[in-house]
Amino acid sequence: MFRKPISWKWQSALGTAAILSLIAAYTALSHHRQRIDPKDRTVPSWHQIWSEGGLLKAFTPKEETGEIVVWEDFKASFVRFIVWFALSAVASTLLGLFMGCYSPLEAYFVPPLAFLSKIPATLMLTIFYVLVGLNFKFYGAMIAFGIIPTLAVTIYHAAKEDVPEELVFKARTLGASQMECVWSVILAHIFPKILEAVRLSVGPALIYLFAAEYIWGQENHGVGTTIRLQFHKGAAGATLSFGYLLLLGTLGLMGDSLQRWFQKWWCPWYAH
């Protein structure tokens, strides 16, 4: 068993079993709380999550605009996330790649990135609030500051250490220019690792997005998942909170699986 790969069927079965266990554990916990106090909403039942001011309401179109609240919230958060996360990932990739390939860039950027990567972006909230104000750029500043230093350093290490120099020498004997070596050899070689590093950055990026939305929610009545949850604070809003958490978790699982599938599809050699 030790470090032996298992079949795809087994993998799927075990993964599904783990999710079902989570659902069963939650159901048991909620049932236990409901038996003690049927009015308790700190761990609502599935029925309560759906019906009592929870998801059912969020999925019902508003009378005045016809918009579905949950769609409106998730769309707003998703747009903020995808725009700034994509830009940050591209910037990190370029920065890390060129740092790994060119020593002067490495010498110039490594110290500031090491410095910045030790400062949690959440501590920069007030500074960004003053610097960029509460607007679309505020989310960008939080996500970029939160993930670029660590992602760029991860990619820089991959570019510097994961590609055997023999492959670069060989490419040069095959007529590759320096830029061809960067693009066609080093980038191609570390691409699956870049995808993996980007996938692992999704979690931290979401934390910074939600932290920014939290601040925004305190100041404005905008739309967004965290902003909505702020309006439904406390035990009364727990049914909606759990509903949103459930949706976020499901979307996260789907997104993660999609990224894994893309990595396997784009880099089939990496799976072997």
Partner: peptide
Amino acid sequence: RDRGIVYQKYSLFPF
């Protein structure tokens, strides 16, 4: 490109 090389290890591009 006037000199070709074959190493013992890392002789091919894995991708």
